[in-house]
Design a protein around this nucleic acid. Structure first.
Lengths: 184, 184
DNA sequence: TACGAATGTATAATATATTGTACGAAGCGA
DNA sequence: TCGCTTCGTACAATATATTATACATTCGTA
């Protein structure tokens, strides 16, 4: 699922078969060897971009159609099964629930912060926005010198192209969901 | 210009420099070696799709942003300098003025047909359309058993997912522009 | 049944993508 | 100027992408 070249292989084979083309015919149309096309379809090879370019142009299809997920599938994620990025000696734990997807332009983490934990984040690039929904405990967010207290069930959004910090001043674990949106 | 990997290199370098990143930092972010990133930027290497995928995800950019032309440039095409696809012993000559561009989804040819020339075209795939503007002489187009006579200055459009034929029954050279549109 | 054509796969040879390391150039304080 | 760092490039070693060829299977046909 995550291996891009396998996705490309599936998509390519889908296009080829939907047109009733053989490997030989496809090789003729694209200028890429039959063996290579077969390997790409099976996921046995990691095509260079030049080869993909030839295929795309020979078949008169878009580049995107090869790298796109054929359909958006149901994806169930269990936080406990994810491997967290830990910071602050494990007191700050970020679980990548939906990793960055360049077609969507955002990523979603579930974060847990132990009592007393404080975490500073490097500024992101311009026009990057962060959305936070606190799901448990209470969170202090500091942006541009201002501090905002967000209780469970509440949310905040802020431009993340500047240094910002998260603090859990309570005596219980605070959890929140954060969505980071990158400009297209 | 036409070499895809050089375009990718330019775009990648543009992104990296606009963020003030060094090769080392980019390597750190993407998990791709510094040497490789340098080679890609210079066009010395033809990256595999997996490597591009890592870069795209590490930098939080879209795949498309790497393969797109940074800006649409002015492109002047002189038909006489183009190499024609010849058929019917050279009596049918097709000049690729604007070759297939998957982002646009179409391609444009200039065609010259000698007097008496007749040319049959294989059916294209479903939902492919052909637009023809006759610029000189007169053209007979046969689609689905029907024949249409198109004089200079006139045009025709038809679905090209069936056999179709072109004929020049006049005693002079007929020329026309044809645009072939492929579905997305 | 046998044959020929067409399919997708396996194999070996070659080209090249990818990496780790080392190098020279350019900035920057002391 | 000297060191120190950071930058991008050059190099050699290795992994692997790509090709041409040969192979096994299937299918239609005589």
């Amino acid at each position: 699922m995550d291996a891009i070249h396998k996705k490309v292989g599936k998509n390519l084979q889908a296009v080829r078969k939907s047109r009733g083309l053989s490997l030989d015919q496809t090789a003729e149309l694209t200028g890429v060897s039959k063996a290579m096309i077969g390997q790409i379809e099976r996921g046995d090879s990691n095509p260079t971009i030049s080869v993909l370019w030839k295929i795309v142009n020979g078949l008169k299809i878009s580049f995107t159609s090869l790298i796109e997920e054929s359909k958006t599938e149901v994806t169930v994620v269990e936080t406990e099964r994810l491997e967290a990025f830990e910071e602050e000696d494990g007191a700050y734990r970020a679980f990548p629930m939906f990793p960055y997807d360049q077609r969507k332009g955002f990523e979603i983490y579930a974060v847990r912060m132990d009592p007393g934990c404080s975490h500073e984040s490097e500024p992101h690039n311009e026009d990057v926005e962060e959305y936070i929904v606190v799901t448990g405990g209470s969170l202090e967010v500091e942006v541009d010198g201002e501090t905002y207290a967000i209780g469970a069930g509440n949310a905040v959004r802020f431009p993340a192209d500047q240094p910002h910090a998260y603090r859990n001043n309570t005596d219980q674990v605070t959890s929140y969901i954060t969505l980071i949106h990158y400009p297209s």
